[in-house]
């Protein structure tokens, strides 16, 4: 009786999820149809239109995303490791500030950041945008959680006995044990940078310096769908590559049993 009841519930859950999946998918099926049917011609039109400005936007987006991604991921994983394992002055204060800044969206800091970037004459400069977007406290906090649970003190002490210094612990112990962490942080950082709209739109004013999400606004109704599809493809590919890590690794060990 209980087993029949449970099976019926499981089927109900599956049906609900499939219906919701279908409902969410419909707009994207429309988007893909809208971008076609001749995708090659749509891309050609997009990249030839207005002297190929879309190529410039794509190039700007790639430079911005990959530079900020590299800086943010490297700095936040190392910082997470140091905060979790090593001894530094004001460790708790830094962790506290990381958490506070993690709870404040970038939109809240956009205006103060603009004022600062303007004072150092880096507005309308991709370098200013890269620096302003490279601070990633969410990644640091995830790294902190990960290393606290994945590198117990016994393991760290064994590493010390084997002659590993602070950098050696990170290089020989933390990196090999944190592949899942890197995947998660790269995915979420890429997602927020690639689609970033507000900060680029206030820091970059010249259309030649725009990124793809800003270009979408300028293109409106004239190739928007194909740019939308173009922008979604790398995120989907990255998700598929890292979804196993995302599923297993996020907050891994942080939910105590």
């Amino acid at each position: 009786m209980i087993r029949t009841y449970e099976r019926r519930n499981a089927n109900l859950i599956k049906l609900t999820l499939w219906i919701l999946t279908f409902l969410v998918l419909v707009p994207f099926i429309w988007l893909i149809r809208e971008a076609g049917p001749n995708y090659l011609a749509s891309f050609k039109f997009l990249f030839m239109n207005q002297n190929g400005i879309a190529i410039t936007w794509l190039k700007n987006s790639l430079v911005f995303t990959f530079s900020a991604l590299t800086i943010s991921v490297l700095t936040c994983v190392v910082a997470g490791f140091v905060l979790a394992i090593l001894d530094i002055p004001f460790r708790k204060t830094m962790l506290f500030i990381t958490l506070i800044t993690m709870l404040i969206p970038i939109t809240a800091m956009a205006m103060p950041l603009y004022v600062l970037i303007d004072k150092i004459h880096l507005t309308d400069n991709i370098f200013g945008l890269i620096i302003a977007s490279s601070y990633y406290p969410f990644g640091t906090f995830l790294s902190y959680l990960y290393f606290v649970s994945a590198l117990p003190s016994d393991l760290v002490n064994m590493g010390r006995i084997d002659g590993l210094g602070d950098w050696g612990l990170f290089w020989h112990l933390a990196i090999p044990l944190s592949k899942a962490l890197w995947s998660i942080i790269i995915f979420f950082s890429f997602l927020s940078l690639w689609n970033s709209y507000q900060l680029p739109s206030i820091l970059l004013t010249d259309p030649m310096h725009s990124t793809l999400p800003m270009g979408l606004e300028l293109l409106y109704g004239n190739g928007t769908a194909i740019v939308g599809v173009l922008m979604m493809v790398p995120v989907i590919l990255l998700y598929l590559l890292s979804q196993r890590s995302i599923e297993r690794g996020i907050f891994s060990g942080a939910v105590k049993g």
């Binding site: 689609n195 999400p213 939308g228 989907i236 979804q243």
Partner: peptide
């Protein structure tokens, strides 16, 4: 992946 799609789409989309 499907539930993530609306979040993957840029604001303009």
């Amino acid at each position: 992946l499907v539930f993530l799609l609306p979040g993957v789409a840029a604001g303009g989309i």
